[in-house]
Design a protein around this nucleic acid. Structure first.
Length: 580
DNA sequence: CAGGAAGAAATTTTT
DNA sequence: TTTCTTCCTG
């Protein structure tokens, strides 16, 4: 087994061989930290004889967990059996603990995780009641507000204070009541419930600590308060806890990550072994030098100097163009130059730089800070005939325009779908807001009928004015008209029809030119996606289309090695590698 | 009208 | 953290 660590650098090996006690690995970007982590796990099992089922490797993203599993699988095929090891996100771990341990202890009943759409709906419903003077604070603002308060309360829980519902803000209380009534947890609850459970049921907590003797946590600098407290609880007083992270890559403070947790590791665990990984295998010396200059300015950091293994490489070029259009065109021509294709370059004077290695499209990424900046670049690249893929966080089906149309399709398929009905009325019908929709839902709930049926029944509510009622009725008319059309028209035509009736796309001419074409594009994409279901009348095609969408939402988008330039945000690029 | 203060929005993960 | 918008003041 002596060759197990032979491929590691001295500091990587030092980290991998540290078996007992707290271990802090300060790992710069591109220093092979996942590799080190996995080799350490293998070492723990193969050399230190620790049963694999006693190891926990915790990540923050499924991507990181997948990468780790892949590397572990590669080692397993070389004869080291790590299959019993738990590798997963901190959320999946909590999910498991809650589903098994907590339920058997009678601490929680069965639960589901609230879907983003439902969570948004709950917040949209509650916010106006608690913040009447604020007209239109964004949803995310409220989400963050709730999350922050919950994390603050997690600290109380960790100090063994009882979490009473009186001690929290009315907004949070109302929010939690809605979730509780439906047996739902949000992602913060997943962590906090587990934390409270460990605090309250110390026997179970002790059992878990014995069951898992060695913990490793990747991206430790990204922990938020509740996650940090939970890990401390799970690690206990004499922890074999391995924290891996880099304060210089702490880019998620805005969503509650506390770099302090990473910086305080030595105070938390004074006997911690500390290993710095400073040898960078990913980037050229030029890039390392430049990034070092930027990083040095960080205030909250642990001193560390990246050492480049690669040669200097190409110089960094900084170009200032007149506007975004020029910038997009420049990027397109630059990519053309890099791959050396004559196909899209101007005719005459183009020649490939001979000393550049041959690059293909998949080796190139375009980064930007905002998703909104992608559009012009995308258009310019398309015009130049460059294949591309946009790594957007939400799929087409989560774009607001598409969601409205999908909600309409859902409603045509099943008029009893109150979620779809509410979303439609609220987002697509002018003059109807959350207030009207809330009272409608309220009414429907009390009289045991559906939202649509309530409108149909000429119900009377004092808070719904005549002019709102007129809008509601014209919506009913539209619904009936579309139901009729769905019997004959194919799905793609029906979608066009819906878009036109709801003034989505080309119809809204007063909008800014840019936002119109984005909407149009979404619409076209949606119609394209619907084409396979358009051979039959829409009424038959809709359910098939909807179930395909549901499937797509579940499964992750799989297109890793496409021969295309990748467009993504700077945040999205963390930890990725591109040759160019 | 320039220019500054103050506020809002954007960056994103998690079953 | 940074950038854009809005509103106010001299």
């Amino acid at each position: 087994m002596s060759d197990l660590l032979s491929s590691l650098s001295p500091s990587q090996r030092a980290a991998a061989q540290t078996v007992n006690g707290p271990l802090l690995i300060i790992a710069g970007a591109g220093t092979g930290k996942t590799r080190t982590l996995v080799h350490r796990l293998a070492y723990l099992v193969a050399e230190a004889r620790i049963p694999a089922e006693k190891l926990l490797a915790i990540t923050f993203t499924t991507r990181a967990a997948d990468e780790m599993r892949e590397r572990i699988a590669a080692l397993c095929s070389q004869g080291i059996d790590l299959s019993a090891l738990f590798v997963g996100t901190i959320h999946s771990l909590c999910h498991r603990i809650l589903k098994h341990e907590c339920r058997s202890a009678g601490f929680v009943s069965d639960f589901e995780i609230i879907s983003p759409a439902d969570q948004a709906a709950v917040i949209r419903n509650l916010a106006p009641r608690f913040f009447p003077e604020q007209q239109s604070l964004s949803l995310k603002k409220y989400e963050l507000m709730l999350s922050r308060e919950k994390n603050d309360r997690a600290r109380l829980a960790a100090e063994n204070h009882e979490l009473t519902s009186e001690s929290c803000s009315p907004f949070l209380r109302a929010y939690q009541e809605v979730l509780e009534r439906q047996g739902l947890l949000d992602f913060d609850d997943l962590i906090i419930k587990t934390l409270v459970f460990l605090k309250k049921f110390s026997l179970h907590a002790q059992e878990l600590r014995t069951r898992f003797s060695h913990l490793s946590v990747d991206e430790y600098q990204d922990l938020n308060t509740a996650q940090y407290l939970l890990l401390r609880e799970l690690a206990g007083a004499h922890p074999n806890l391995c924290a891996v992270g880099d304060a210089d890559q702490a880019i998620y403070a805005f969503r509650g990550a506390q770099v302090k947790n990473f910086l305080n590791f030595q105070q938390d665990f004074p006997d911690a072994t500390i290993v710095k990984l400073e040898e960078n295998f990913r980037s050229t010396r030029t890039i390392i030098a430049a990034s070092q200059q930027v990083i040095e300015k960080n205030k909250e950091r642990i001193e560390k100097k990246l050492i480049a293994v690669k040669p200097a490489g190409a110089r960094i070029e900084l170009c200032e163009l007149l506007d975004e259009r020029q910038e997009a065109r420049f990027i397109a021509s630059e990519i053309g130059r890099l791959v050396g294709g004559a196909r899209f370059e101007s005719l005459g004077h183009d020649q490939r730089d001979e000393e550049l290695p041959e690059l293909s499209f998949k080796d190139i990424a375009v980064l930007y800070r905002l998703h909104a900046q992608a559009r012009l670049i995308k258009e310019a690249l398309e015009q130049a005939g460059i294949p591309l893929q946009v790594a957007r966080d939400r799929s087409l089906y989560e774009e607001p325009d598409a969601e409205v149309i999908i909600a309409m399709l859902e409603l045509l398929h099943d008029q009893g779908n109150d979620l779809a009905a509410a979303a439609l009325l609220e987002n697509a019908i002018k003059g109807l807001g959350p207030k009207t929709v809330a009272s409608l839902k309220d009414y429907a709930g009390k009289s045991g009928t559906t939202v649509i049926e309530s409108i149909r029944q000429e119900f009377s509510l004092p808070e719904i004015t005549a002019d709102r009622r007129a809008r509601l009725h014209s919506f009913l008319g539209l619904l009936d008209e579309l139901t009729e059309k769905a019997r004959t028209l194919p799905l793609d035509q029906l979608i066009r029809e819906i878009a036109a009736k709801l003034s989505i796309g080309a119809a809204s001419a007063d909008n800014e030119e840019s936002s119109v074409s984005q909407t149009d594009e979404n619409l076209l994409d949606l119609i394209t996606a619907a084409m396979p279901f358009s051979a039959v009348p829409a009424a038959e095609g809709i359910p098939h289309f909807l179930s395909k969408i549901a499937l797509l939402r579940e499964g992750e988008q799989i297109c890793p090695q496409q021969e295309a330039v990748t467009l993504l945000t700077v945040h999205g690029a963390k930890g990725l590698e591109f040759p160019a």
